[in-house]
Design a protein around this nucleic acid. Structure first.
Lengths: 105, 105
DNA sequence: TTTGGTGGTCATGTTTTTTTGACTTATTGA
DNA sequence: TCAATAAGTCAAAAAAACATGACCACCAAA
């Protein structure tokens, strides 16, 4: 088939895009922290060592754009925003567990 | 437990290190191409679109240092080198397949 | 109408990664 | 001895990622 090679390339590109998305700064931390429930921007900033607003913001935005996280304004009083794993995001959980176990090989 | 958090951090760090190793330029391609059997430097250079010697060399060296690839000189005629997946490398195969399927979500 | 809290953005530097092009080593065959 | 081929290395430039500090938007209460 002539499509075989191009299909494979597409797969590789997607795998690479996903890998890149997940491996950027603070992304694994955001991911793992969000396993325990919804997260607020300020708490992430506090809880992730060395995190800064700009990178964290970029991480959250990109993960949201990829459909892995969802963003929800929960209060307008002093303005609260929550980030939580989408269904798609939750489907990556076993992947992360696998990754952590591989890390120990 | 006080160890719980540090354990998780260790896991994250290891996962992150592995993510970095696997997500670098051309690494997923090298990985997937090597599923079909041993690879030569020049064929990788040909088959991976946009690949350049330096980055490819770095990818191969790092994957070898991590124990995922093995390097073998197979001929001394015009000097041939083969790269192939180690046992450890092969153990990552399902992980990559999972990644590729996620890429399509 | 000024202050305070939360959740950001923007412009600018700095650091890390990747690319590029010239050079190297080893071996064979002419 | 000289060219050719495979598999690289090295230094420098270019590009991408990341960090920093200043600033903005929104709303409420004082």
């Amino acid at each position: 088939m002539t499509t075989k090679n191009s299909d494979k390339n597409t797969e590789t590109c997607k795998a690479q895009a996903l890998l890149k998305l997940l491996s950027g700064k603070f992304r694994p931390e955001v991911f793992r922290l969000s396993l325990n429930g919804p997260l607020r921007f300020s708490s992430l900033l506090r809880d992730i060592p060395g995190a800064n607003k700009q990178s964290l913001s970029a991480a959250l935005r990109e993960l949201e754009e990829a459909g892995l996280l969802e963003r929800k304004i929960i209060s307008i009083k002093p303005l609260h925003v929550e980030y939580y794993l989408s269904v798609k995001g939750k489907s990556l959980v076993p992947f992360f567990h696998q990754l952590e176990s591989f890390g120990e090989i």
